[in-house]
Amino acid sequence: MIIKINGKYYKIKKIEKNPNGKYTITTENGKKYEFKNVKIFSEEELK
């Protein structure tokens, strides 16, 4: 799965839903981001 952050695309390693309704997304390079609204892309959609 792929996520778009600030115009760049990252591969997703893990998605966790937090009790506060936000999502914590861990990218393949180990960085964590927290979002309220998340749009996930499949690799097929990006081709």
Score class of each variant (00 low, 15 high):
E43I: 04
Y9W: 14
F41L: 11
E44D: 13
I5S: 02
E16V: 11
E34D: 05
K4H: 08
N18E: 09
I40T: 06
G30P: 00
G30L: 02
Y10M: 12
G7K: 04
T26N: 02
K47Q: 14
E45R: 04
N18S: 11
K13G: 05
T27A: 09
N6A: 13
E16P: 00
G21K: 02
N20Y: 06
N37H: 15
E43F: 03
Y23C: 05
E28D: 09
K13V: 15
G30E: 03
Y23K: 01
G7M: 04
T27G: 04
K22S: 15
I12C: 04
S42N: 11
G7V: 01
Y10S: 02
I40G: 07
V38L: 13
G7L: 03
K47H: 12
K36R: 12
K13P: 01
F35M: 12
E28K: 07
K8T: 10
E44V: 06
I3C: 09
K8V: 12
N29F: 08
E43S: 04
Y23W: 14
F35E: 02
E28F: 13
I12S: 00
I5G: 01
Y10Q: 06
I2Y: 15
P19L: 10
I40V: 08
N20H: 06
M1C: 12
K31Q: 12
E16S: 08
V38N: 04
T27L: 15
L46S: 07
E43M: 02
Y10F: 11
T24L: 13
I25Y: 03
E44Q: 10
N20P: 04
K47R: 14
K4Y: 15
M1N: 06
I12K: 00
Y10A: 03
S42W: 14
Y9S: 05
K36E: 13
N20R: 07
K32D: 04
L46N: 09
K36H: 10
F35T: 08
K11G: 04
E34A: 05
N18A: 12
I3P: 00
I5K: 02
Y23S: 02
K13I: 14
G21M: 02
Y9F: 12
Y10G: 01
E28M: 14
F35S: 05
E43W: 05
K4D: 04
I3E: 00
I3Y: 02
G30M: 02
N20F: 05
I12A: 03
K11T: 06
K32P: 01
N18F: 06
K39D: 11
F41I: 12
I12N: 00
K13M: 13
Y33A: 02
I25V: 14
T27E: 01
G21N: 04
F35I: 15
T24A: 05
K4P: 02
K31F: 10
V38G: 10
K39G: 07
E16Q: 09
Y23A: 01
I2L: 15
E34V: 14
Y33V: 05
E44T: 07
I5L: 07
N20G: 07
E45D: 12
Y23I: 12
E16A: 05
N18W: 08
V38H: 05
T27Y: 04
I5A: 07
K4T: 06
P19D: 11
Y10D: 01
L46V: 13
I12P: 01
I25L: 04
E44A: 08
K36V: 14
I40P: 05
I12H: 00
I3R: 01
L46Y: 06
N29H: 08
I25N: 00
Y9D: 03
K31I: 10
G30R: 01
E28W: 14
E28H: 13
T24V: 14
N29V: 03
I15T: 01
S42F: 15
Y10W: 08
E45H: 07
N29D: 15
Y33E: 00
N37S: 13
N20V: 03
G30W: 02
Y10T: 04
N6D: 10
G21L: 02
K14F: 10
I3A: 08
Y23H: 03
I25K: 00
K17F: 08
K17D: 02
E43N: 04
N20Q: 06
N29S: 13
N37E: 11
K47Y: 03
Y33N: 01
K4I: 15
M1I: 11
I2A: 09
K17A: 07
M1F: 14
T24I: 14
I15K: 01
K4L: 14
Y10P: 00
K22P: 03
K47F: 03
F35G: 03
Y33F: 13
K31G: 09
K22L: 15
P19R: 11
T24N: 04
K32L: 08
T26R: 01
K13E: 08
Y33K: 02
K36A: 14
G21F: 02
K39T: 13
K14R: 10
E16M: 06
N18Y: 05
V38M: 10
K17I: 13
N29W: 06
F35V: 15
E43R: 02
E45N: 09
K13Y: 09
I2R: 08
Y9R: 04
N6V: 03
L46F: 11
G7D: 06
T27C: 13
T26Y: 11
I25G: 00
K14W: 11
N18T: 10
K36L: 12
K47V: 13
G7S: 05
K39I: 12
Y9G: 02
F41V: 13
K47A: 13
I12V: 14
I25P: 00
L46R: 06
T24Y: 09
K17S: 05
S42R: 09
K36N: 11
E45V: 06
N6H: 12
I3V: 11
K14H: 15
N37C: 15
F35R: 07
K22H: 13
K32Y: 06
N6P: 00
K17C: 14
T24P: 00
E34I: 15
K31R: 12
Y10L: 11
K31C: 15
F41M: 10
Y33L: 05
E28G: 05
K31W: 10
Y33Q: 01
I40Q: 05
K31T: 11
I2Q: 06
K11D: 02
K31M: 13
F41A: 07
F41T: 08
T27K: 01
I2G: 03
V38F: 09
N18V: 03
K32I: 15
K22C: 15
K39A: 09
P19W: 07
G21H: 02
K22Y: 15
E34C: 12
E43V: 03
P19C: 11
V38K: 04
K39W: 10
I3W: 03
I25M: 02
K11H: 09
N6G: 14
T24F: 07
N6I: 03
I15W: 06
P19S: 12
Y10H: 08
P19H: 09
N20C: 06
Y10K: 03
E34N: 08
N29Y: 08
